[in-house]
């Protein structure tokens, strides 16, 4: 069965010289543990930006991390137990970690979960609202330290991942190509990218379209696909490629 595993608010800002693991790193460790224990297969992690507001006690950027996994039913409880213990143990002492595990097929009204995700990008929400919705929809939601405020972002992260249209993938892709130039079709066949698309226009590249690879190859989560966004190259530049991958600053709003 397919599940969404989402966590939030696991870290604090490092100020005293002690290394602090970010939420993304902890999410990656949970994902790795699921695969190491052969509980199932996991999809890449997405990062979801939530509202920046003075009334929200985020660390520095207020984002949550989510991934999908395909596991056997029998491993659901062990997985939740493991992730709960892991967050309680590995999160920074002053943080407010939250964990959400949603069985995709069992969510009674998925639209409400997606709506909660988008609400969390635009409004200040409460823990009570998060717990009430999780209970109504049959979703596991738990807190593992501090105020437990991370349950809001954790639930929102699951909703935004489920929406298929929010966030960018954790990490960046490495693609070897001569002169850093490659066909769009080869990108899709070599790495976890389903579609190469123009950032500003609704143009989806054809397999033979040539793309220049920048040093920041990071897909985003759009249309329920891993989409690599590109921009058109100035026509005045003599090159067999008409496209180049987008930079960090161009992807900052995803």
């Amino acid at each position: 069965m397919k599940i969404l595993v989402s966590i939030d608010d696991t870290d604090t800002m490092k100020m005293d010289g002690v290394e602090v693991r970010g939420t993304g790193e902890l999410s990656g460790m949970i994902k790795q543990a699921i695969e190491d224990q052969r509980w199932g297969r996991c999809e890449p992690i997405t990062r979801h930006q939530l509202l920046i507001h003075p009334d929200i006690p985020y660390t520095s950027h207020n984002s949550s991390m989510c991934f999908e996994a395909d596991i056997e039913h029998v491993f659901l409880k062990p997985l939740i137990d493991f992730a709960s213990d892991f967050l309680a143990r590995e999160s920074t002492p002053d943080s407010d970690p939250g964990l959400c595990v949603a069985v995709t097929d069992r969510i009674s009204r998925p639209g409400r979960l997606i709506a909660f995700g988008y609400m969390a990008k635009n409004y200040v929400l409460t823990k009570l609202a998060a717990y009430n919705l999780a209970e109504t929809l049959g979703i596991h939601l738990s807190e593992h330290g501090g105020t437990g405020q991370g349950v809001i972002g954790a639930l929102a992260g699951a909703g935004l991942r489920l929406s298929g249209n929010d966030g960018r993938f954790k990490g960046k892709l490495k693609i070897k190509a001569e002169n850093n130039m490659i066909k769009a079709g080869d990108i899709c066949s070599r790495v976890k990218v389903d579609m190469v698309k123009c950032l500003e226009e609704g143009i989806v590249l054809q397999d033979d379209d040539m793309v220049i690879l920048g040093d920041h190859i990071k897909p985003v989560w759009l249309y329920g696909k891993s989409v690599l966004l590109v921009q058109a190259i100035d026509q005045g530049v003599a090159s067999p490629a008409c496209w180049q991958t987008c930079s960090k600053s161009q992807l900052k709003d995803f």
Binding site: G24, R168, K170, G171, K172, H216, S247, K248
Partner: peptide
């Protein structure tokens, strides 16, 4: 530098 995933400037 922050985690790579949180960087937004080129």
């Amino acid at each position: 530098p922050d985690d790579e995933d949180e960087m937004v400037a080129d």
